[in-house]
Deep mutational scan, measured.
Amino acid sequence: MEVRTIKVFTTVDNINLHTQVVDMSMTYGQQFGPTYLDGADVTKIKPHNSHEGKTFYVLPNDDTLRVEAFEYYHTTDPSFLGRYMSALNHTKKWKYPQVNGLTSIKWADNNCYLATALLTLQQIELKFNPPALQDAYYRARAGEAANFCALILAYCNKTVGELGDVRETMSYLFQHANLDSCKRVLNVVCKTCGQQQTTLKGVEAVMYMGTLSYEQFKKGVQIPCTCGKQATKYLVQQESPFVMMSAPPAQYELKHGTFTCASEYTGNYQCGHYKHITSKETLYCIDGALLTKSSEYKGPITDVFYKENSYTTTIK
């Protein structure tokens, strides 16, 4: 009895394709271990004539594949690729409408935090270190965002349907971005203890939790000093293409032309909904596939993004 075979390709990165001759009487799992086709788990399936010449994702289970996976995804987590594939199996079914010149995501599976993050990423200057993220990001900007969303979920250790947080998501993504040249110098002034300067680099240099107003941050924000008295913390120097200011959701007025974009969060910790506000020729609110415009805006804002380049204080 002759062994019926077909020729397929296996890959971990969709760049390096490895030619395989597979036995049609055995499952993919018996031949390769966990195997995925377009995100779908085909591990328990036997090869079919229609699979001839198709590319299958496999887990990096030998040295060659491990090197290829690390170079593309910059992670050695053995569960990463499987999590990416199972997320992709959902995100490829989502709709990605162009809204006001940006790629958004039609609401499904509690994905409003991903839509808000995706919209924000198209408006701030950011370059990702893992080629996987950078490639998928370019495709997302062009309207094909399924891979990018699935990668975000995998890097953030999230599953489809789980509630997510924009600030946490951005923080994970910033860790995989090139923020080497970003720098922030802060000064804390206390009447009792004097003053202390701190220099922050990388992710810490672009994120701040405690106030939404970048102007206020430049002037000074009140913080408790270690001595128990009130101290003032203010920005001395900022070198970065953008800054992200966050605070627990509270009524906040966004003035046209003073910011790049913002995240609105309605609801409580267990259950809520994100919308995205962007400042173009007027203010726009993007909620999944829905767009509304207004000249002014007041609502429960939790993150505001500002364009920056270089700032030095005039406070002496």
Rank of each mutant, 00 (worst) to 15 (best):
Y155L: 02
H48P: 13
T302Y: 00
V189I: 10
L119G: 04
N129C: 07
P78F: 10
E215Y: 05
G164Y: 03
R167Q: 00
E125L: 04
C193I: 05
S171D: 05
K307W: 05
L291G: 09
K218N: 00
T278L: 09
M170I: 08
A115Q: 10
Y234P: 02
K229V: 07
Y284G: 06
Y28L: 13
Q31V: 14
L186S: 10
D303E: 02
Y297A: 00
E162G: 06
M207A: 07
N16A: 08
G194I: 01
C156E: 01
H176E: 05
Y214L: 13
A289T: 10
P131K: 07
T282Y: 14
G210H: 03
E144C: 09
Y297G: 01
Q122L: 05
S295Y: 15
V3P: 13
G267Q: 08
Y113E: 03
T302N: 02
M24R: 09
Q251I: 12
T103K: 01
L186V: 15
N157S: 08
K183T: 11
H48M: 13
N187E: 08
V22S: 08
Y234N: 06
M209F: 14
L17C: 14
P97I: 13
T43R: 11
G143V: 03
S213V: 04
E2K: 11
V3K: 13
P248Q: 13
L102W: 03
A108I: 07
H74C: 07
Y234S: 08
H51A: 08
H18A: 07
W107G: 05
A69Y: 08
T120E: 03
F174W: 06
T5R: 13
I45W: 09
D180M: 10
Y252E: 06
H18W: 06
S171I: 14
A132L: 04
K218L: 05
Q251R: 07
T55F: 06
R139E: 12
S25R: 13
P60D: 09
N129V: 08
K218T: 06
S25L: 11
A145K: 04
A132R: 04
S171W: 15
K158L: 03
G82D: 14
T232M: 14
K158W: 06
L37W: 14
K275W: 00
T278N: 06
K229D: 14
A154C: 06
T5M: 13
D13S: 06
C190N: 04
Y138G: 13
E215D: 12
E215L: 06
N187F: 06
P249Y: 00
Q237N: 10
K218W: 07
K233E: 10
Y306A: 01
Y72D: 07
D38I: 10
